[in-house]
Design a binder for these strands. Structure first.
Lengths: 180, 180
DNA sequence: TCGCACATGTAACGTGTTACATGATTCA
DNA sequence: TGAATCATGTAACACGTTACATGTGCGA
């Protein structure tokens, strides 16, 4: 089995915080910052179906008071395990480069784990980001001075972004070290 | 007609800098920072086909010295116009929120335009980013102090990121104002 | 002769986007 | 009566990913 997608992990995480219907999830995605992982009924309902088919979540139909019968989903034991494994999985340079948003999603759900896991996550993120920054600084040298500066400047933006990431990781790590 | 995709604009931009074959483009995507817009032959060759069918690029087969005949693409007049229109198009809060990478790609190709267009782009980016930051600061208030702090901290990361964006835009704008 | 650099593509697959379809209840 | 909210879903479509297929010439 391949890993669930980012959207599926987002759903699995939200269901771990509180059992919800597809409609609830849509509302959360529409109104909160997590909405960057989209979406719309056309993505959420199929994703719920896939997760249920794989046995990571289970839905119970609630016919009691609703206008229309609704299906309340919650993670199964297997789903909870899959989520935890994902939350603890190591961070590579490649993750930082291509999936930074997914890493932040992961962090947001770290409240489901203990403080040690959070610290491991943050120090891993800081380290992987530093590695990637070292690569970027090497690559920066290829820009020559007689070309138009736009490419280099766009590149500098990338560097700024990852510097901000490393700083955030270290600042947040300090926070978790102080409060423990 | 809908707009070309980000990958198609990236290809159109690269071809505007220098006529290239699919293989050349693959190599550029693999080895330079632009590679974040992927890719692999399975994405690039179909994208070249779509652009050609839409009349935005044209390819000439070069059979002269190559090991295997190669097809060198360059933008048509229509393609150049489409690219320029895209480069000059206004920046919204929504672009900043969901397509920041695409905006940076756009900026990288601004060497094809004049300095005034670049300044417009950067001031537009700074303004749209400020607007989005104002939204984020409102949203930040919904996090309460008794919840686990992870969600709020992930959110702070987002704010840091867009602050870095606004700073970059203003710094780069100053650069272009001084050198003119 | 083996593998690498050059060079172009296709096929299967999964997934997200957009738009649509359905239907009950509450409130102005 | 009509709109909004609650609530679930499907269908068409386009796109990217991965993996595969094909073929030449050059250097070790």
């Amino acid at each position: 089995m391949t890993d669930p997608t980012t959207l599926e992990f987002a759903i699995l995480g939200l269901l771990s915080l509180a059992p919800s219907t597809g409609y609830d999830l849509m509302h959360i995605f529409e109104t909160t910052a997590i909405g960057n992982y989209s979406s719309s009924p056309g993505a959420i309902y199929p994703a719920l179906g896939r997760l249920e088919k794989r046995g990571l979540i289970e839905g119970v139909v609630d016919d009691s008071q609703a206008l229309r019968p609704k299906k309340v989903f919650r993670p199964t034991a297997d789903g909870a395990k899959t989520l935890r494994r994902w939350l603890r999985s190591g961070i590579t340079k490649n993750d930082v480069q291509r999936r930074l948003d997914e890493l932040l999603l992961k962090f947001a759900f770290h409240s489901l784990l203990d403080a040690e896991a959070t610290r491991d996550f943050l120090s891993g993120l800081a380290k992987a980001t530093d590695e990637y920054l070292a690569d970027l600084r090497v690559q920066r040298k290829i820009f020559s001075d007689d070309e138009p500066p736009h490419g280099r400047m766009a590149f500098e933006f990338g560097i700024d972004r990852y510097r901000a990431c490393a700083r955030w990781a270290r600042r947040t790590l300090r926070h978790f070290e102080e409060s423990s």
